[in-house]
């Protein structure tokens, strides 16, 4: 297989934020202790007219615009999300039309809780690597759902990332990928239900930690690398505490984790979470540097990637908004506005 990697990337984060304290106050909880236990201070909130599709389109347009890619070269679009606005009718076809990639391509939507986006990356790698397509577009996008008053509400955020996967003109090569999957009922949403259910503490050790650590260690074994061989580590960020602990358990330092650690002021963007961390690292990584990214999706599984940054990354700088720019100057909203934006008030 030829080398395969990232030709371009784009991110999108809605401009609104709600502070954890504001949510806590609404439910009579102690904001201070929640902030400390989650290590999340605020989360992004979609506008009333934003959803997984619009976020996916904005991220995809950013990725294409960053490198002025001819959208007709894109042979596959896969969008991973746990909040596709249609249960039946793909997000990816709307994205395809909105970026002008139709009609000669294949498209489908992926769902694997928070790792639908990294599954899309792997699918694109396969198609690109085998020569079936020229470029593939892998998107992770979510307007994550949390029932009012549920613990998820403190972190469930909105955002998305799109990666253009190709064989040439690579800004970063994906040197290896490694996945680990088991049947793990830690978190789910039944058909027709508005909000997910989760297993509380069960989502921790047997779910998140066992899978993400297994995949990251598997990748390092497969590639004969150790944490010291990496400049950055990006782990799925359902909150601040989990990836910090997992990174420590794997042997990574805070310096390696820091640049891709976006959760404290963004929240958990689900399918966009690990990919947002990757985008934040690509915004500043230098050629030759190495990134370990591992996603986690409840249900459960983890996809780990070894990404090596190439010279072409310099061509991509400042051609599209960086993650830190997208996080800058947010508009803070009240719980009432947040509830309106998220359609939590049924009229």
């Amino acid at each position: 297989m030829d080398s395969v990697g990232i030709v371009s990337y784009g991110a999108y984060i809605p401009r609104y934020r709600i502070k954890v304290d504001e949510i806590a106050e609404t439910w009579g909880e102690d904001g201070d202790s929640i902030r400390k236990s989650l290590w999340v201070f605020e989360k992004s909130v979609p506008d009333i007219d934003e959803d997984t599709v619009t976020i996916a389109v904005e991220a995809a347009r950013s990725a294409i615009g960053r490198r002025e890619i001819d959208p007709l070269r894109i042979g596959a679009i896969y969008t991973g999300s746990e909040s596709h606005p249609y249960v039946v009718k793909p997000t990816s076809t709307i994205v395809a039309e909105a970026i002008g990639a139709t009609p000669l391509l294949t498209a489908a939507d992926f769902e694997f809780a928070c790792k639908g986006g990294t599954a899309a990356i792997q699918a694109c790698m396969g198609l690109v690597g085998s020569g079936m397509i020229d470029l593939g577009l892998a998107i992770g996008s979510d307007v994550a759902q949390g029932a009012p008053g549920d613990a998820l509400e403190y972190t469930a955020a909105a955002g998305g990332v799109a990666l253009v996967i190709g064989r040439s003109e690579l800004a970063a090569e994906i040197e290896a990928t490694y996945s680990l999957t088991t049947d793990m009922p830690d978190f789910w949403r039944r058909d027709g239900m508005p909000y997910p259910e989760h297993g509380g503490r069960f989502t921790g050790e047997p779910a998140y930690f066992r899978h993400i650590i297994g995949a990251a260690q598997g990748l390092m074994e497969k590639t004969s690398t150790t944490p010291g061989d990496y400049d950055y580590v990006v782990l799925h960020q359902p909150n601040g505490k989990f990836p910090m602990r997992a990174a420590r358990m794997l042997g990574f330092t805070e310096r390696q984790l820091g640049p891709g650690f976006v959760v404290p002021h963004l929240g958990n963007t689900y399918s966009g979470s690990a990919m947002m961390g990757l985008a934040a690292v690509l915004d500043l990584a230098e050629p030759g540097e190495r990134i370990l990214m591992a996603s986690f999706g409840s249900g459960a599984g983890s996809d780990a990637f070894l990404v090596r940054v190439l010279d072409e990354i310099r061509e991509l700088r400042e051609k599209a908004p960086s993650v830190s720019e997208l996080l800058k100057d947010p508009t803070y909203v009240s719980y009432a506005t947040y509830a309106r934006h998220k359609g939590k008030m049924k009229m």
Partner: peptide, 14 residues
């Protein structure tokens, strides 16, 4: 920007 402009109904097309 790309946004949702409306919907036919809660069950209908977006």
């Amino acid at each position: 920007v790309f946004r949702k402009i409306g919907e036919e109904s809660a069950e209908g097309m977006i």
